[in-house]
Design a protein around this nucleic acid. Structure first.
Length: 805
DNA sequence: AGCAACGTCCCG
DNA sequence: CGGGACGTTGCT
């Protein structure tokens, strides 16, 4: 900081780019840092970004201005790379000065650009004065290898475990790493990486980057690490013997660089970005991919995957895993496309689905994009790519698109890459949706669509119900990729039921995890009507025919089909194929499942005997405004109570059978109209479920009080199941069939089976029900068979009286 | 646009 | 751990 202060005074901290894969993610909620966050229930003391969201290409803040002319970066105003470079702000890793290369008197050519971090270089001045970064050079070699791992991850990862990953890194240096802080003093051995606190660090701050540059002799090529040192382990420490404070610092910076680098390698590819004399980052990084790094990468990838799976909650379930993986892969592909510019495409190989062709990619992006609300028109970028998608594809589509929110800020950020800008522009357009990258909570909160929840995207894709095995089968499909187009998105608006809590307030019960989950609404563009084949022609069977075929498949089978290709995936998502979704008895309801449900907008949803949480249910219900049937039987009241704050105007059937711990008071809470503003969703007068015609309360510990609630709040009830409600007496029947009860005319089916307190007295009462067609009185021990016989209804033929046995 | 309040998280 | 820079949103 000193450095910066010296310059401009204010500290110039870098901020996340919001475009890299990491930035586009949502907090995992599980890492050390997430757990510390207040929104995840932590104390908020660590104030660190989620491990999965650590930006790989931090950019200068929007407020950064040229030290010389005081203006911001202006690369946007020109077209050529050369000019862009001259007008963009560059931060020197040595003196920290931020300046327009064009504002330098000395030739900017002298500067050594660091490709790995946007707008970062060793300014000509410093370079000339011999302050080469390399000083740290040595450091360079040292760098990361020590852990052999990725710096960044490592660093962060460590914490969780405890403090560090002790063993590995240090060996050479010795481990004090963990305590790094304490000994700020000891320059010498302090672990290369972390510590540095040693004195002067400040000025050095960023220097490290140098490694990249050729300056760093050894490392030059692969800065990363080490290659040189070889394997890793702790090499650096070794060299550090002499290390002085400065060196430490350096190493620190270097470390940072390393982090970025690795991240780049792993998550994205390093951007080639322009210019730069020095190194070619990309090549470099790639190059280094010697076996070591390659291995590392793989490892990372695997880890990442595991992490994600875990997040998604899939890890546990058997087959689901496959699907998730696939999703991930897709995501990866998309991200590449999105996130960075085209360049990547070529290489993408490792991760994405193999088969994808360019089209495939596009499509992917499209797919992704659909999630966000109605997308704006294509847009600039799109030109090349398939229309719809491309437009947003990039940004929005990607999960992160959330990131783009804001204001002009983007402009600046984008500077590094031209292409990006367009994207950003779009993003802005889409801004609505974007909640903002997870940065602010607010977004998080309710607005479904908006929120951006990155991770959700991926999940979205996955289908809820399904849990099929095959993992990435996809391969071939890619060929099929078609131009997507799809249907309207509907969910946007809803969702907010959870109002955003007033800022300062201790935030009421805001959904924590789920709220951050972004669900891609159904594609905004029409679905393809035909199935493109590799040959370029279309399959003879058009969509309608395929849909007819799909209608004969089970949901599980549909899930399998969804893996076939993009087109099928979309077709199989047709709401008509998913009018009913049954997740009953699923061990756990995972975010991907929820997303999948939302995307399919079922008319009937069975969540019976699941462990769905209150937040999940609330989140879900508020995004299923068209739901007609809901089954939450066997779920705990603590979860079902979410319905007390929900609005289900269309709901016709509600199954609350055997809801754990549910009592009369709960039912009142559920049926009564919202009394306070918070829940008021419009339906105040008639009760929250006033349009429900079928209610199942089987097996609940309800009393006759319930009947009054039903009469009062469910005037249109036609089918009522009170079976196994041991405390129900004739009083209930009396209430339901009283002259004042609207139910006496509406009820057509009444189930009192197992209501052991019901007596023969109820029979005449039942006769008061003008429309009653059947009454199930089986297992009503106080009733005798003959009594049942006596019961007669106006239209005997239709009536059925079951009496038991 | 400018400001205040608040959330995020870089950087010491 | 936490100061405080930076970003976003809601108001005016």
């Amino acid at each position: 900081m000193s450095g910066s202060k010296a310059l401009g005074g204010a500290r110039r901290r870098r901020t996340r780019c919001r475009r890299c894969q990491a930035c586009m993610r949502t907090e995992c909620g599980e890492c050390h840092f997430c757990k510390d966050m207040k929104k995840f229930g932590g104390p908020g003391r660590m104030k660190q970004s989620c491990l999965l969201r650590q930006c790989t290409a931090p950019v200068l803040p929007h407020t950064a201005v040229c030290f010389s002319c005081g203006e911001a970066g202006k690369e946007d105003t020109v077209d050529t790379e050369e000019e862009k470079f001259s007008l963009s702000l560059m931060e020197c890793t040595i003196c920290n000065e931020i300046i327009h290369p064009s504002c330098l008197k000395m030739g900017k050519a002298e500067g050594i650009i660091n490709d790995e971090i946007p707008n970062c270089w060793e300014c000509p001045k410093c370079h000339k004065e011999g302050k080469t970064s390399k000083d740290g050079g040595d450091g360079s070699g040292k760098r990361r290898m020590d852990n052999g791992e990725v710096g960044r991850w490592k660093l962060t990862d460590d914490p969780p475990p405890t403090k560090k990953k002790p063993p590995s890194l240090e060996d050479g240096g010795r481990q004090d790493g963990h305590k790094r802080k304490k000994e700020k003093e000891l320059p010498q051995d302090s672990g290369p990486k972390k510590k540095m606190k040693g004195a002067h660090e400040k000025r050095l701050k960023k220097k490290q980057k140098p490694n990249v540059s050729e300056t760093a002799e050894s490392n030059g090529p692969n800065s990363s690490t080490g290659g040189g040192q070889g394997s890793g382990g702790g090499s650096n420490s070794t060299q550090s013997p002499t290390s002085t404070a400065s060196q430490d610092q350096r190493s620190h910076h270097r470390e940072k660089l390393e982090r970025f680098k690795r991240m780049c390698q792993l998550l994205e590819r390093v951007r080639e970005s322009s210019s730069s004399s020095s190194s070619s980052s990309e090549s470099d990084s790639e190059s280094d991919s010697d076996s070591n790094s390659a291995r590392e990468r793989n490892r990372e990838r695997d880890r990442e995957r595991d992490r994600r799976l875990a997040e998604l909650g899939f890890s546990a379930s058997e087959d689901s895993e496959g699907s998730v993986k696939e999703e991930e892969e897709e995501e990866a592909v998309e991200e590449q496309v999105v996130g960075d510019k085209p360049r990547r495409r070529g290489e993408g190989p490792p991760r994405g689905r193999k088969g994808l062709t360019t089209d495939g990619n596009d499509e992917e992006s499209v797919e992704r994009s659909r999630k966000s609300t109605p997308l704006p028109p294509p847009s600039p970028l799109s030109s090349t790519q398939p229309p719809p998608s491309s437009g947003h594809g990039p940004s929005p589509g990607s999960e992160g698109f959330s990131g783009k929110r804001s204001n002009g800020s983007e402009t600046r950020n984008g500077r590094t890459r031209a292409g990006v800008r367009d994207r950003e522009t779009q993003e802005k357009e889409n801004a609505n949706n974007s909640g903002g990258s997870g940065a602010n909570h607010r977004h998080g909160t309710g607005k479904g669509n908006k929120g951006n929840k990155i991770r959700s995207n991926k999940q979205t894709g996955s289908q809820p119900t399904s849990r099929n095995s095959s993992s990435n089968s996809s391969g071939g499909m890619s060929a099929l990729a078609a131009s997507p187009r799809s249907q309207p998105s509907r969910m946007a608006p809803r969702s907010q039921m959870m109002k955003r809590s007033p800022p300062a307030v201790p935030s009421p019960p805001r959904p924590v995890q789920m709220e951050r989950h972004l669900v891609r609404p159904p594609p905004a563009c029409p679905e393809p009507h035909c199935l493109p084949l590799d040959s370029g022609s279309s399959h003879v069977m058009p969509r309608d025919v395929w849909l007819r075929v799909f209608q004969h498949l089970s949901q599980r089978e549909l899930c399998v089909c969804m893996r076939v290709c993009r087109t099928w995936s979309r077709w199989c998502c047709d709401k008509r194929l998913w009018t009913q979704i049954d997740l009953s008895r699923q061990r756990s309801i995972t975010p991907p499942m929820l997303s999948g449900i939302i995307r399919r907008q079922p008319v009937s949803l069975n969540l019976g005997y699941t462990n769905i949480s209150k937040k999940q249910l609330m989140w879900l219900i508020n995004r299923l405004q068209g739901l007609l049937e809901l089954n939450v039987s066997g779920c705990p009241w603590s979860s079902v109570s979410a319905l007390c704050q929900a609005a289900c105007p269309c709901l016709r059937l509600l199954d609350l059978s055997r809801v754990e711990d549910m009592k009369d008071s709960h039912l009142r809470e559920l049926l009564a109209p919202p009394t306070d503003t918070r829940t008021a969703h419009g339906e105040s007068r008639g009760g929250r479920f006033q349009n429900v015609t079928e209610l199942r309360l089987a097996g609940l510990d309800l009393t006759d009080v319930t009947s009054r609630l039903l009469v009062r709040y469910l005037p249109h009830l036609t089918k009522l199941d009170l079976s196994q409600c041991g405390n129900i007496t004739d009083q209930t029947i009396h209430t339901l069939t009283s002259p004042m009860s609207p139910l006496k005319d509406s009820l057509t089916h009444l189930n009192l089976a197992g209501c052991v307190k019901v007596t023969e007295q109820c029979l005449p009462l039942l006769r008061r029900c003008a429309s009653l067609q059947s009454a199930d009185l089986r297992s009503c021990t106080l009733l005798t068979p003959d009594v049942c016989q006596l019961l007669s209804f106006p239209c005997p033929d239709d009536r059925v009286l079951l009496k038991n046995s």
